[in-house]
Design a protein around this nucleic acid. Structure first.
Lengths: 246, 246
DNA sequence: ATTTAATGTGTAAATTAAACACATTATATT
DNA sequence: AATATAATGTGTTTAATTTACACATTAAAT
C-alpha cells in the first residue's frame, strides 16, 4: 500500500515546498505585456503600432509592449507602457489573454500578457513621441511581427464582444458626442451597418444618455444634438443575466 | 531638436534589443498555472481542491497548480496538471485570466495563469490519487488559500457566462443524458431555477439534441428519454452575433 | 389496484427586434 | 434671396422571441 505522498511522487506531482525552492532557483520565465491600443478617428477604428526593430521582423508592425519588472504588478506594467507611448493616464485597460508558446519570441522564452486599451485620439494627438509609431486602420492590418497578428485578432474580437455588453465605446469618443458619432463608432467596431432609427431607439430606451442641450459645431450640415453618457446611473444598475443561446 | 531615439530614451522607452538582453539575464519571473476543475455530481456543481501544505495557509483549500517549465507551452502545463491530478486526458480546458500581484504568493513572485476545466466526474472517480484532494460543492467554498478565492470566483463567473453562449455543459454530463439532467446542470451552474417547459422548448428549438430512442434506466419514477448533443451540427453553424445590451 | 413522482406537451400574453419613409433643419450653392 | 443639399429627428407595423402558466401520461413502488 502506498502512502498519499508516495502516490504523489509516482504521479509526478510536486509539493508546494518543492515549488518554493524552484521559484528561488532557475525555473523562471521572462514576462511581457503587449497592449492593443485602440482609437477612433475619421469614423474608423484604429490601432497604434510600432515598427519592429528586430532583424527577423524588420519593417513589420508590432504591438506596444515591454517586459514586466519582477517587482511590478501586471496592470501597472500595462499602464506604464500606455503612459510611455501615449502620454495618457486614466485610460481604459483590460487584460485579454496570455500567450506563451515556447517559441513565440525570437529573443527566447517570453510569455506575454495581452491587454487592450481604448483612448480618445483627440487627447493623444500631440503626444506621439516617436515617428515609428502610427495609427493604423484595423481593417488594413495583417502580417504583423511575432505572433502579434494573433494577439491583435484576439483583442479585437474581445472588444467586439465587450462593446455589446458594456458601455466601453464611450472611452473612444469625446465626452460630448452626437448619436451619429456613436453609431459610426459601433459600426466601425462591429464592422456592419445598422438602422439609424433602431439604433437611436435602442440607446434612448436604455436611458443612459444625457441630453446636454448643446448642438454640434462646425459641421457642414444640420447639426445634431450632443449627449453625455450617464456613467453614474449605469453603475447603479445591475446587469440582467440570463439567456442560453449558442 | 531631438531624434526619435533620444525621445524614446527620454520617455523611458526601451528597445527590443534592450529587452533581448534582459530576457537572457535576471529579468525573469516564476510562472504557474492554476486549474479550477469543475465537476457535476448529485445535481451540484463541484470543484476539485487540495489542502494547502504551506504553513501560512495550513488547512485551507487551494486550486491545483504547478510551475510552468521553461520549455513548456502554457496549455501543456495545464493539461499536465489535469492528467496528474485526475488521470484524465482530452478534457475541456480554457484559459481565463492571469493573476500577477507582486505579493500574491508567499514563496516569492509567482504569476499564475488561471484555467478552468470541465470533467465528467463518473470518468474520474477511481483516479483520485491523493486523499488530500476533495470535490467541494461550489456553493460552500470560501476563504481559500493565497488569492485562490479570487481566481475561483473569476473562473466560476467565466463558466456561467460561457455556458450560456456555447455548449460547454455537455462536458460535465455523460454522453447520453436526459433533459432533466441537462436542466439540473444549468440550474446548478447558473444558480437559479428555470421553467421546465421553456427550458425544453429552448433546447429543442436549437435542434442540436439527438433523440437516441433510449430511456433512463434504474430511476425510481417514470424514465425520461435520453439524448446526445450533436457537436458536428453545432460546429457547422455560425454564431449570430449582434445585440447591444448593457 | 392504487399511489407516487416524475415526464411530456401547448397556448396566450408580453416583450423585444426588425423593417421601413417622410418632414425638418442648417449649411452651401446659385 | 431662393434653391439645392445632406444630414437630423421621429413612429408604426410586423415578426420573432421570451415568459407565464396547467394538465394528462407513464413507469415504478406500495
Amino acid at each position: 500500500m502506498l502512502t498519499g505522498e508516495q502516490l504523489k511522487q509516482q504521479a509526478g506531482v510536486r509539493t508546494l515546498q518543492a515549488i518554493q525552492s524552484e521559484v528561488e532557483s532557475t525555473n523562471k520565465i521572462a514576462l511581457s505585456v503587449d497592449c492593443v491600443i485602440f482609437g477612433f478617428d475619421e469614423n474608423k477604428l484604429k490601432v497604434l503600432l510600432i515598427k519592429s526593430d528586430l532583424k527577423k521582423y524588420l519593417g513589420k508592425w508590432s504591438l506596444l509592449g515591454d517586459l514586466v519588472f519582477p517587482n511590478e504588478d501586471l496592470d501597472a506594467a500595462a499602464y506604464r507602457i500606455l503612459k510611455q507611448r501615449t502620454g495618457l493616464s486614466d485610460v481604459f485597460l483590460e487584460q485579454v489573454h496570455t500567450f506563451g508558446k515556447v517559441s513565440r519570441h525570437p529573443a527566447g522564452r517570453v510569455v506575454t500578457i495581452a491587454y487592450y486599451s481604448l483612448i480618445n485620439v483627440q487627447h493623444h494627438k500631440l503626444n506621439i513621441l516617436d515617428n515609428e509609431l502610427h495609427w493604423h486602420d484595423v481593417k488594413s492590418i495583417n502580417n504583423m511581427a511575432f505572433d502579434h497578428q494573433e494577439i491583435f485578432d484576439t483583442c479585437l474580437k474581445q472588444l467586439q464582444k465587450r462593446v455589446q455588453e458594456h458601455p466601453l465605446g464611450f472611452n473612444l469618443l469625446p465626452k460630448k458626442f452626437s448619436l451619429r458619432e456613436l453609431q459610426n463608432l459601433y459600426e466601425a467596431i462591429l464592422d456592419f451597418k445598422m438602422d439609424r432609427r433602431n439604433f437611436r431607439k435602442k440607446f434612448f430606451s436604455m436611458d443612459f444618455l444625457i441630453d446636454i442641450k448643446e448642438m454640434e459645431q462646425d459641421v457642414p450640415h444640420r447639426p445634431g444634438k450632443l449627449y453625455k453618457f450617464n456613467f453614474e446611473k449605469y453603475e447603479k444598475k445591475k446587469k440582467k443575466f440570463i439567456g442560453i443561446d449558442f
